[in-house]
């Protein structure tokens, strides 16, 4: 696994590595407080069946999706490190099959914090072409390569937490539990390394933090995110999702945080982001300064739903980010 990572690390230039590392450290500073402050907490996780073979585990950081079948459990996102014991216990209590696969939607600590622990609790799916790997090895971790790079270039590398199965093309596909699993890269959205995870037979799409129904999207500009890219990603999601009768059900969507949704909520979220973006674009074209845009409260109908005056991502930061991107 290490050789594989080293090989992939060579794909980026030294300049890119330095920039990526700097951005990663900034993000760690931002998110590690969330992780540390939560370490002494007991997390109450909640398991909900979504449809088909897919479940949601809510609480303890970002949402976790589980694909469960006769072969084993596939875990999409492993929550905060401090919640990993509860996550493993929940899986073991409810499903009598081992954890074989882990998928990361992106590289933030509230989604990959438990990678090492969850991988160690499972094991690799044994097969005749497993390349000499022992079936006692940890479960395999899949992600876009941009999730792996900051982890292996950090000062302290926890190799057990690093995705070893990465991809650089537009998508990655494999079979698990008789179900086709697609990781579809969304460049420059929430981060530069976002993957949508689509379980085709169960008809469930896992969005990661591209879609967070409880708050304005966090655009991690320092790690390659962009508002335009996130709008594009939401529109890409709409090409995958097919609703059932009367615009509900059909393809279900698990957001990065919050409840189970379907196309309607994704459309509303896309509409919200596009409308605010185009209002600010118009304001800039009319020569309004950032302060004038803030005073105009151009997101005022959405602020009570998605906004926050406190925390690490406020409504003001959201507006500032859009303004900065459109001013470039």
């Amino acid at each position: 696994m290490l050789n594989f990572m080293k090989q992939n690390t060579k794909l980026i230039s030294k300049k890119d590595t330095t920039k990526t590392l700097g951005n990663f450290l900034l993000l760690m500073t931002l998110l590690v407080s969330l992780n540390v402050s939560a370490q002494n907490d007991d997390f109450e996780l909640e398991l909900l069946h979504v449809q088909g073979n897919v479940y949601l585990v809510a609480g303890g950081g970002g949402n976790t999706a589980l694909l469960v079948g006769e072969q084993g459990v596939l875990v999409v996102d492993t929550k905060l490190k401090a919640a990993s014991d509860e996550l493993i216990a929940l899986i073991e209590e409810n499903f009598d099959v081992p954890i074989h696969w882990i998928v990361n939607t992106h590289g933030h600590l509230d989604h990959i914090g438990g990678n090492a622990e969850v991988a160690a609790a499972g094991n690799i799916l044994g097969s005749s072409n497993s390349g000499g790997r022992a079936v006692t090895d940890p479960a395999e971790i899949y992600a876009h390569i941009e999730v792996m790079i900051p982890l292996v270039t950090a000062d302290e590398v926890d190799l057990d937490a690093v995705p070893g199965n990465t991809y650089t093309a537009g998508s990655m596909e494999f079979y698990a539990n008789g179900e086709s699993v697609q990781l579809i890269h969304q460049p420059a959205a929430h981060t530069r390394g976002d993957s949508l995870v689509f379980f085709r037979q169960s008809n469930v799409l896992v969005a990661g933090d591209i879609f967070t129904i409880q708050r304005y999207p966090f655009i991690d500009v320092a790690n390659g995110g962009s508002v335009r890219g996130l709008i594009d990603a939401l529109n890409n999601m709409l090409t995958i999702i097919i609703p059932n009768t009367n615009q509900q059900g059909g393809t279900y969507v698990i957001p990065g945080h919050g409840r189970i949704t379907d196309e309607y909520e994704v459309v509303n979220y896309r509409d919200m982001l596009t409308i605010i973006y185009e209002r600010i674009e118009d304001a800039i074209a009319r020569g309004l300064s950032l302060e004038e845009v803030k005073t105009a409260r151009l997101s005022r109908e959405y602020d009570p739903l998605y906004g926050s005056d406190t925390g690490f991502w406020t409504s003001e930061q959201f507006i500032e980010t859009i303004y900065a991107e459109l001013s470039q």
Partner: peptide, 9 residues
């Protein structure tokens, strides 16, 4: 249902 359950029309 749970707060995490889907909303419907």
């Amino acid at each position: 249902p749970s707060e995490y359950a889907p909303h419907t029309w």
